[in-house]
Amino acid sequence: MLGFGEKTATGIHLSGYRGWLVSMSRRRSGTEPLALVEFDLPVCANAPDLAETDVQAQLVDVLREVGEEYEVDFSNTCFALDPNVVIVKRSALIAGSEREMREHMQWEAEQFLVGEQDAFSVDYVLESEWGLFVAVRRSALAGYLALGKRVGMRRVDVDVPAFALYNAADGAGVFSSIAGSEVLVYGAESEAYMLLVDQGEAMQVAHCRWSEDDNAMDVLWGGVDRLVGAVGGRIECVRCAGGSVEGWGVELADHLQCEMALVDPLAEMVGEVASDWDPARRSEYAIAAGLVQRGLAF
C-alpha cells in the first residue's frame, strides 16, 4: 500500500533477446529502487514485430512472470523505444518566443516527413541554440501500447533510449558539473545508443548496431566518431554504461583521448536493493532507470 505522496514507476528496456526492468518508489526520504531484473526474451523485441500476436503473447508471458516473481507494480510503466523506429534531427532555432520556435520545429519536421506527417507522432526538445525534433511511427507506438495493455499496465509511456540515458545520468547528478562536450554511450549486446551533450544540453543522438560478422568496437568507434564530429572531435569525457562497460569504455576513452566515467543510475538512491553491486553492474540498468526517472517526474 502506498503512503501519501509516494509514487512508483517502472521502466522496461528491451534490446535484442535481453530485457532489463527497474522499478522504483519515490518517497519523502528519497528515491528507492524496488526491483532490478535482467531477463531473457524468447523473441527479438523489434518494434515492428510487437504488433504481431504471437510475439506479443510471448513477451506478455515473460513480463507477467517477472512481474509476479519480483512483485512489480506495472501501473505506471515506460518502455524504451526501439531506436530503429525513432527519428531525431537537430535544427538551428530561430529567434522568437517558445511558440514561434515550436512552429519552426514543426515546419522543419513537416519538410522532413512530407506526405507522412499523420503517420508519425512528433515532439520537440528545445535547447538554448538548437532544437531536436523526435518522430516515431504511430504504428510502432501502437505495438508498445498493445503490449502494455495486455500485461495490464494502467499507464503506458515510451521514451527514446538515448534520452533515458541522459535522464539516468541527470538523476545521478552528473550534469551539475558538466562543462564542455561529453558523449553518453550505452552498449548492449548488439547495439549502442549514443548522445552528444554540450554544456549539459542534448545536441545529437546516434545509434549503431552490429552483427556477429562485425567487429563491435569498430562499429562503435565509427558511430561515436561521426557523432563527435559535430563538435570537431573535442570531447571532455565519455560516460559509459551497459554490459562489459569496463572493457570497452576504457578503450573508447583511449580512442577519443578523453576521460571515462561510468553512468551509475543508482548513485543518488537510498535503500538496500543493489546497494552491494559495483557501479559497472548497476550501469546495465541505466536505460531502464532513466525511464523510471521520467515516470516518477510525471
Binding site: D123, V134, V136, L141, Y144, D157, V158, V160, Q293, R294
Partner: peptide, 10 residues
C-alpha cells in the same frame, strides 16, 4: 530532464 511526449502528446 529531457522529456518528449510521443504517446500522451497533449
Amino acid at each position: 530532464m529531457i522529456r518528449v511526449e510521443l504517446i500522451h502528446g497533449n
